[in-house]
């Protein structure tokens, strides 16, 4: 079942007269439960594509639908509701409110949603933190934990309202390789439980846990690669396959 459908989307940047198409007539579908990564060189438009799919970036052409609804038609409140209820975001750099501790940052979207009792929300946050092994850090200031721990907290925040899809913009970009692997394992586990994952990355190791890889170059999807669902095996082989495809494509 299609969760997101992008049809002939177009996005330009730059001053009038000197505009450059960052997304140039891209059409893709993301299905429920899929694990998709978008790869490409710097400036290929991969982050823009992710933000366009999540409704954070306005388009100059084309259409993006989420569960069949045109995202461009949604009002500010409806878009905010959509982001809060059905989407989760993990950014390259940890993005947290500086005056809140880790736990408060994690529960912030759920507190706004206000569907559960406060104690229930805190319980859920603690469960998520436990599952990414940061349960001891809730009361810490965001400056008192490492980058990897912050990224885990970011994943907890993205999952606090049980979204349909989690977007990640280079979520391991600022981490060392050991932390990156741990974070990718977490994403893989989340996906196994049914949450759709869409990540932007330039790292073949990150894409190795995905089942579909989109290759972007100069604002166009130049290729697509499908892999069997990752079961924790053949990681090196999958990484190698992706790397070879990148070389073939000259990306």
């Amino acid at each position: 079942m299609k969760l997101i459908s992008a049809s002939r989307i177009l996005k330009r940047f730059g001053e009038a007269g000197e505009q450059r198409a960052v997304l140039n007539d891209i059409s893709i579908d993301i299905h429920e439960g899929e694990f998709v990564t978008v790869m490409g060189p710097s400036g290929s438009g991969k982050s823009t594509l992710m933000y366009a799919l999540s409704g954070m970036e306005n388009l100059d052409g084309g259409e993006v639908t989420f569960e069949g609804h045109d995202v461009a038609e949604l009002k500010d409140n409806e878009l905010a509701d959509l982001r809060r209820r059905k989407m989760g975001f993990v950014f390259q750099q940890p993005t947290f409110l500086r005056n809140l501790n880790l736990l408060d940052n994690i529960i912030l979207p759920a507190m706004r949603e206000n569907k559960l009792e406060r104690s229930e929300i805190v319980k859920r946050a603690e469960f998520l933190m436990d599952s990414v092994e940061i349960s001891e850090l809730g009361m810490r200031d965001i400056t008192q934990v490492s980058g990897g721990q912050l990224q885990r907290a970011g994943i907890c925040r993205a999952l606090i309202n049980s979204p349909r899809i989690v977007f990640g913009d280079e979520p391991t970009g600022a981490l060392n390789s050991a932390s990156s692997q741990e974070i990718m394992n977490i994403f893989s586990e989340i996906n196994k439980k049914g949450t759709t994952i869409t990540l932007v990355t330039h790292d073949a190791k990150v894409s190795a846990v995905a089942e579909r890889i989109l290759f972007l170059s100069d604002g166009k999807v130049v290729d697509e690669m499908r892999l069997p669902k990752y079961e924790g095996r053949n990681f090196e082989t999958r990484t190698l396959q992706i790397s070879e495809r990148l070389i073939e494509l000259g990306i």
Partner: peptide
């Protein structure tokens, strides 16, 4: 602007 961006990203609307 940074905090506003974060809040918007996690689902806080302009009215909030």
């Amino acid at each position: 602007r940074y905090s506003i961006g974060i809040m918007k990203a996690i689902g806080y609307n302009n009215a909030d």
